[in-house]
Simulated assay, not measured.
Amino acid sequence: MANPKTNSSAYWKKNLQTLIFLLVIWFLVSFGFGIILAEPLNTIKIGGYPLGFWFAQQGSIYSFIVLIFIYVVRMNKLDREFDVNED
């Protein structure tokens, strides 16, 4: 039988790894592409709008929504793996 304390620590370690990974992606998309790399990205046009502007206005929002769904799927998988699911 697994030690509950060790099992809990492993669960939270994987949870935090997932969270940090997704937050880094969100930061890169919103701050990196929308602000820091806006000028180079503005040379590319999507639907007549500069790509840097698109990332600043829409891309960060869309990526955040996708990251929420990725987080939900990943946490459901972790919950089943560590037997803490609500099913």
Rank of each mutant, 00 (worst) to 15 (best):
K14M: 10
R80H: 07
A56N: 11
A2L: 09
G47F: 11
T43H: 04
L78S: 08
D87W: 02
F33L: 08
K77M: 14
D83P: 00
F69H: 11
Q57P: 02
K77A: 13
I36R: 09
P4S: 10
L16D: 03
F53A: 14
F64H: 09
P50R: 15
V72N: 13
I44R: 03
V66D: 12
L19C: 07
F55Q: 09
Q17R: 09
R74I: 06
N3F: 00
R80I: 01
F33K: 01
E81G: 01
S9Y: 10
F69A: 13
D87Q: 02
F55S: 08
F82T: 06
A56M: 11
Q58F: 13
Q58D: 10
T43L: 07
S60I: 03
M1I: 06
P40N: 05
S63N: 10
V66A: 09
G32A: 04
N76G: 07
L28V: 15
I20N: 09
N3H: 05
K45H: 05
S63R: 03
Q58C: 05
L41F: 14
I25S: 02
N42C: 06
G34R: 04
S30R: 12
A56D: 15
G32P: 10
W12P: 14
W26L: 06
G32K: 02
N85A: 12
V29M: 06
Y49Q: 12
D87Y: 02
S8P: 01
S63Q: 08
S8K: 02
W54Q: 07
I70L: 12
K77T: 15
I36Y: 15
N3W: 06
S8G: 01
P50D: 15
G48C: 03
G34V: 07
D87A: 00
I25P: 03
L51H: 01
I36F: 14
I35Q: 13
A10Q: 13
G32T: 08
F53T: 14
D79N: 11
V72A: 13
R80N: 05
Q58H: 08
E81I: 01
K45V: 07
A56R: 09
Y62P: 02
L23M: 11
F27Y: 13
V84F: 10
M1Q: 08
P40V: 00
N85L: 08
N15Q: 02
G59C: 05
A10D: 14
N42V: 09
F31K: 00
A38D: 13
V84R: 04
G48T: 08
S60F: 04
L23W: 14
F31T: 01
K77H: 14
F55H: 06
M1F: 03
